[in-house]
Design a protein around this nucleic acid. Structure first.
Lengths: 217, 217
DNA sequence: CAATACATACCAACATGCGGTATTAAAAGG
DNA sequence: CCTTTTAATACCGCATGTTGGTATGTATTG
């Protein structure tokens, strides 16, 4: 293939293809060759020119998956018109309403068939999302009196772990009924932490996602 | 190597070696050849005679890791002299006191370097441990009045997920101080579910494990 | 003698490395 | 300014070493 004047386009193309394949077949069952085959003439050398390894591609893919989500989280975190508790509630509401989610959920098999991608996303959740987005909000909540805890770091982690991983329909392949129970238990957990922020609007939307996810089976 | 009259010994040997390597270097960075090299003369044929694939070895290793633990859980689940809530408390106490844990914690890098093993253990936790051991205990607790919930299945999952995964020092590579905060938050979560069963004895032991795990660094 | 416990030789697929080439951008020279 | 030179970069495609897995052979057991 001819050389591209704008190499970022090539990089984006590689990431597009890799993203789809990683989600559809899993990282370990996607070969570099299978990526090349869908690249429309691009070669192995092209890939290894832009990325130093297959794992490097995964890192870039995960970055792209989380980029939009993190931008939203940052916006909520830095908004000045809400207290900590309200920001937390806003996060659940907004993060669940992005259509990107639908696509991922509809395409992805469960985590057990994609351990590497799953573990990368989990790692990001704990090492990036929790400390950089959730914890600051909780700390603000402590300062403004809307949240009470002595352990903001740990509270941030457990909330986001349960919400993003356990309640994610893609992670554990739940039925609608089972997910409903999860939401109820999550709600009770949040109340136990003094955070009564899960309302009907949220529970409905989560079930909607589960339905989408199940349709593809 | 000469043929072994008792092939189970050969199987155990293979699993011993594989177990160590999987934990030390991760599943994906352990080659069949590196297992063979530590087998003391045994060959590839031996391995593929007893196991049909590398993944089959992983399954067997995970079974062995969980076997003792599950025996203990079954014993508590089936004991007749405790109510549901007491059994739950007993589980935390006993499962944390097994010396096997020390060894695993001392050898293992964090989950992110071992996604396949991690995801296998996580899968076992959700698909085996929660429904077969924790949920029945919670259901007994509902029946005998010592536990209140409308969602025993989901409650079982979230408790064991948080306890086995989030609070596991090996999973997220925590400091002693951070782990202490996790225990406090976990305690509060359990209280939120009406289960006030985490006492000082438990918190002390968990921190001990974290110390062991950190020493190897 | 049949089944089993291994050994040995081998294969195809895979991630990655590398020498080479074409294209572009930047700098130098007129 | 325009042209020439230089250097950087995009990309090609085969070579390489390693990997998981297989086919087949051989010795041992019962």
């Amino acid at each position: 293939m001819a050389r591209n004047k704008y190499p970022e386009e090539t990089i984006e193309l590689i990431l597009d293809v890799a993203y789809r394949l990683f989600i559809e077949q899993g990282y370990e069952h996607t070969s570099i060759q299978s990526i090349i085959n869908r690249l429309g003439g691009l070669s192995k050398g092209a890939i290894y020119h832009h990325f130093k390894s297959k794992e490097d591609i995964l890192t870039a893919v995960v970055d792209r998956i989380t980029y939009e989500s993190n931008k939203l989280l940052a916006k909520i975190r830095d908004s000045s018109d809400l207290n900590g508790r309200e920001k937390l509630k806003m996060i659940f509401k907004e993060s669940i309403n992005r259509p990107v989610q639908d696509e991922i959920f509809a395409a992805a098999p469960n985590f057990h068939n994609n351990p590497k991608l799953f573990s990368s996303l989990l790692n990001d959740t704990i090492k990036e999302v929790a400390p950089n987005y959730i914890q600051p909000i909780i700390e603000q909540g402590i300062a403004d009196g809307s949240i009470q805890t002595d352990y903001p770091q740990q509270l941030a982690e457990i909330i986001i772990l349960v919400a993003n991983v356990w309640m994610n329909p893609m992670t554990f392949d739940d039925t609608k009924e089972k997910l409903y129970g999860k939401i109820m238990v999550f709600k009770q957990m949040m109340q136990g932490f003094g955070l009564d922020i899960i309302d009907e609007e949220l529970t409905d939307r989560i079930q909607e996602l589960a339905a989408i996810y199940q349709k593809k089976k």
